[in-house]
Design a binder for these strands. Structure first.
Lengths: 209, 209, 209, 209
DNA sequence: AATGAATGAGACTTCATTCAT
DNA sequence: CATGAATGAAGTCTCATTCAT
């Protein structure tokens, strides 16, 4: 499902360890400079790797961006999966899912900006791959909604895909508008109000009962 | 309020005319390639200007991006102003404002993506300038909300700035998720449901009564 | 017939003038270092052009090699054409052709080595193009031979294409074995003996009569 | 006489066996890519050796090219020696020598191209060494000619070194023009006609009489 | 006002070679 | 003897920008 990226290095553990370093380093560098202004030298330095050794773990600068984006969408997928394991009730699952997305967004807002800012710098195929992951996330929410509606009744937003997109997109406000939100509201205020806003918007009550 | 951009050319009309051409050309080029992959050659060609003459109307490539972004946020500001002229009632003004943002977003979704994708490529000061415009837009909505609450009663979202941000941000889903939305819903469906979603979310009834 | 090479520069005369400079410079540099060891910096310096300006007249380093090879095969073609204008008699045309090739080879032996040494460094299509020129040269000799045989009688080498190849190839000994020939024989000795060798070989008498 | 090449490895048989593998591998790789485009990785892979182990049998990439060239000129020397053992008569020895060169050229045309294409990529000293071998080959033919002239009479080509060079060079047409020859003549036709051409050229009758 | 040519800085990437195990 | 990982040097090319006309 993920695109595999060739490496000159055999040792699998080493590869994934170094790639982690590279991804983390790249995130820092990309945040500070953006993908295009970032140089492979910067990334290498930040990852404690020589510039040439970098290329033993990655084939191109574009690969690094892909790795970063893959990591970032992975955050959602993991976060959502973890929550869904814990709940069986459709209502709890739906609001749990939303809570998860929102929490992840808040926790990783600095990195996740990249997912919105730099996706278009991906190579075409890489981009398709990443969008497919987002699509999958939407699909997951679409199913949660379907289950909810089957159990509880219809949402206020009739098209389930639209509703799903709203649930996965609105939390991004935290990453993309933090510069404004943070100067006018407290963290918990922001989290609670956005959470409530989305539930109200799609017509779901926050509590079971 | 707007940053002024130096030009070598005296003739004022010519400057603003050419700059319009340049902005429109740049929008097309940026959409196709992104700011960084776009070259001044491309932009010049698309604008029917020689590459060197371009530099009589603009000092750097960054200036072009600034002009583009300025133009794009201007779309909001104009759109909003036009609506507010027509309504005096706080409730009508609030939902009118939302309607306007959403309509503009839908109409210009292709260009407005740039505002989300390329803002971070702006020079620091230019960026601040553009964010200030967005901030101003938020301020406008904040005031609309205050007037509404004074007249009708409190919103479901208690922090007005958060509410304002939600109203100006959520419509962007249309630009940023069109690739997914458009394959699962019709245009009018999308528009109506997002509109209703936001109103529900902040706790405003769609109709005056 | 020739592959055209894009240039950023409009002025046609300037382009061809600079390209001449570049070709001459490249020949010197390639002779000293070979194509692969030669850097675009060296070529540019030798041509009195900045390294970056070089790229306004040529798209890639490979283009330069193509230009060089094209120039070199051109030497044959021109040389041959000039001679053939002057003779109508089939016998005179045939030995005149051979004389021309040999003379050109001797005169330009230093450069023409490149045609044998670096052809394989050409991009596939460029290579095809250059080989086609050589093929054309062979074709020309093939026709000269046919005319000769029609007028005088059959050659000792029965396959005309083989004979043509021998006539165009053997003179290359001068370029490829100069290091040995030059230490054991005088220039005029070399020229005369190779000329006689080829004529004897294909069975043509050196003098008309 | 041959330049010796250092090796880290004591076991002599292993060294020469591996070097054979390396030479054969390198020939394949060089033919496909040329010396400069060939990487030590490719060569190592083709020779079933790790890239680093390669360096236990060879000191530099240039060494490999030298070994290849040495192997290639060796083909001539062996071929010639074998023939000369069998003939005592000066005439038979001369035409036998020519036949041998031509046969080897035809048999190994694909590899021997390298000798003409890549010699200039050799390090200066290596190159000198290889040219010395070619020179030796010319010397051998020069002696064969001297013996022939002593026994039979003067050749048509008066300078013996020039004649020797022609005898060792002309057969190379087979390697360097195969792309054209092969599409216009059959193998045996090519062989016979070139053989006859050279003998005619230098003024030797093909048969003893 | 407009043009065409020129420039300098720098980025990505490749590869022969070495080192530690 | 053999291996896998690491390295440093270098080269091609692009592009925003300027200059002279």
């Amino acid at each position: 499902m993920k695109r595999s990226i060739d490496s000159q290095v055999r040792n699998h553990d080493l590869v994934s360890q170094r790639r982690d370093d590279i991804v983390q380093a790249a995130i820092r560098v990309f945040r500070a400079n953006g993908f295009h202004e970032a140089t492979t030298r910067m990334i290498a330095r930040e990852a404690n790797v020589t510039q040439s050794n970098l290329y033993n773990y990655v084939r191109t600068k574009g690969d690094i961006l892909y790795l970063v984006c893959e990591h970032l969408v992975g955050l959602y997928e993991e976060g959502l999966a973890k929550v869904l394991e814990q709940h069986a009730d459709p209502h709890a699952r739906l609001i749990g899912g939303l809570r998860a997305i929102l929490a992840i967004m808040l926790q990783h807002k600095d990195e996740l900006v990249l997912l919105y800012n730099e996706t278009h710098a991906l190579a075409k195929d890489d981009r398709r791959q990443i969008l497919k992951s987002v699509s999958r996330l939407n699909g997951a929410f679409q199913r949660l909604i379907a289950e909810y509606e089957a159990a509880v009744g219809p949402l206020a937003v009739s098209n389930r895909r639209v509703a799903a997109n709203l649930m996965t997109f609105v939390p991004a406000i935290v990453a993309l508008r933090w510069w404004d939100l943070s100067t006018h509201a407290r963290w918990d205020e922001i989290e609670d109000q956005i959470f409530a806003f989305v539930l109200n918007g799609i017509g779901v009550s926050p509590k079971t009962g």
